[in-house]
Amino acid sequence: MPIPKPVPALLLLFLAAPTGAQQQRMGPPQGETVRTEVRIQRIIVRVPRMDLTAASAAPALPAITWVEKRTDRCVPVANLAAVSVTRPDSVDLMLAGGKRLRARLEDDCPSLAFYSGFYVKPTSDGMMCASRDSIRSRSGGQCRISSFRMLVPSR
């Protein structure tokens, strides 16, 4: 006999709420107005890990050496395309348009948890900023971003 799966708490709350017909029969208490409002608002942006299998099928190219340059302390979340973990203290962000940024993480946060991508909780300004925002691993951990650096190929 299969074991039943647990029902999410939100679904139980929804199922326990009276239906429209039950509410009409019960009606509001004498002289009172009942107002019910439920808002569920949760938006999370998922940034996937860069897929290297397609790149490995192509002929081998010489390795690129990246040089870090100063850049703005914020990046628009809408520009994030993929992530790559190349160092233990940071993650490299690929942006729409081909640019590449390195997000340095705080000292106590290794980047190993971000191999399968990460989540970003969007802010009202639509930006992800160093010293303000954190990235969240799919396993539930989170790391604060200490700074951003633009990556350019060395000459």
Rank of each mutant, 00 (worst) to 15 (best):
P6C: 08
V7T: 15
L11R: 14
L13I: 11
F14G: 10
L15N: 13
A16C: 10
A16Q: 14
A16T: 10
A17W: 04
Q23T: 11
Q24R: 14
R25P: 02
P28A: 15
P29W: 07
V34H: 12
R35S: 08
R35F: 08
E37A: 10
R42F: 12
I44R: 09
V45E: 08
R49W: 06
T53C: 06
A54W: 05
A54F: 00
A55E: 09
A57M: 06
L61I: 12
P62M: 08
P62F: 06
W66G: 01
D72N: 11
C74V: 00
V77G: 09
N79Y: 08
A81E: 15
V83R: 05
V85M: 01
R87T: 14
S90H: 00
S90N: 07
V91Q: 00
V91T: 06
D92P: 06
D92T: 12
G97V: 12
R100G: 03
A103W: 04
L105M: 02
L105V: 03
D107T: 11
C109L: 00
S111H: 01
A113T: 08
G117Y: 00
G117W: 03
G117D: 03
S124G: 10
G126L: 01
M128P: 05
R132L: 14
D133L: 05
I135E: 05
S139G: 13
S139N: 12
G141P: 03
Q142G: 05
I145R: 00
S146I: 12
S147C: 04
V152T: 15
